[in-house]
């Protein structure tokens, strides 16, 4: 017995009421339920649609659809973490790492100067902001290879700026305590914190980009059907 479009829509409503959030899981479960219900109604035509639904739903166990959704969410977070680890690992073997090291070295020497002349921070932060804005401008245009490299450089510099922001905040919070330390110690602490945040921010950016592309394509296919 084949179910009609209206009956399928009714079943979809019942499944949605169970609180599903993942669109592809909703469709997958709907197809499974409809297949199983069609077979059940073929064998027992006296059953109502709701009775058939409840019987098939019981086959999912005491937790119903919940166990399937939980496993799907676990897989999503497993995928994201696997990607994060991969990106973190890749960062140490690509030209990005050399670029980060280079920019970090330039910043380290700049910081040495800035440590002596606090007023230069204004110029330094203005430059960071300038490069940050440049990144957004470049992003919206089609680029040549040379432009692409420049885009990459600006992007890394922007991320380095972001990576420096949090350690700087920490430094400000503990200013009194840190000021008692020699300047080279302070720069060492700042540098180490900045390095961790730069790498973290680069990996996060890459994972976010991958996730938008991957899951975007994944979910958009339902819109085309």
């Amino acid at each position: 017995m084949k179910l009609t479009k209206e009956q399928i829509a009714e079943i979809k409503g019942w499944i949605s009421k169970k609180g599903f959030t993942e669109i592809d899981l909703q469709y997958e479960i709907l197809d499974h339920m409809v297949c199983a219900m069609e077979e059940l109604l073929e064998k027992k035509p006296s059953l109502t649609l709701r009775e058939a639904f409840d019987q098939v739903h019981a086959g999912f166990g005491i937790f119903g659809f919940l166990s399937v959704e939980e496993s799907m969410q676990k897989n999503l977070s497993r995928q994201i973490w696997a990607r994060f680890k991969k990106e973190l690992k890749n960062l140490f073997f690509t030209d990005d790492f050399i670029l980060v090291a280079l920019v970090a070295a330039i910043l380290y020497f700049t910081a040495q100067v800035l440590a002596q002349h606090a007023a230069y921070w204004f110029i330094f932060l203005s430059l960071l902001s300038f490069f940050g804005n440049g990144w957004y401008l470049l992003k919206s245009q089609k680029m040549t290879l040379k432009q692409a490299w420049r885009y990459k450089y600006v992007k890394v510099l922007n991320e380095v700026g972001f990576g420096l922001y949090i350690p700087m905040q920490i430094l400000i919070q503990f200013q009194m305590r840190l000021l008692a330390l020699p300047v080279s110690y302070q720069l060492g602490i700042l540098g180490s914190l900045a390095f961790v945040f730069i790498i973290y921010s680069l990996a996060c950016t890459r994972v976010a980009r991958w996730a938008f592309e991957h899951y975007g394509a994944h979910y958009l296919r339902y819109g085309q059907l």
């Binding site: 479960i29 197809d31 409809v34 296919r221 059907l225």
Partner: peptide, 30 residues
């Protein structure tokens, strides 16, 4: 179903399976 779908999704997330969707008899099939 409670065992099958988690296994399918795990294999998909590990890159051993790929999915394609199409409309079959008024519903989406994966």
């Amino acid at each position: 179903e409670g065992a099958l779908y988690p296994a399918l999704h795990k294999l998909e997330s590990e890159g051993f399976l790929e999915a394609e969707v199409e409309v079959v008899e008024n519903r989406v099939r994966k």
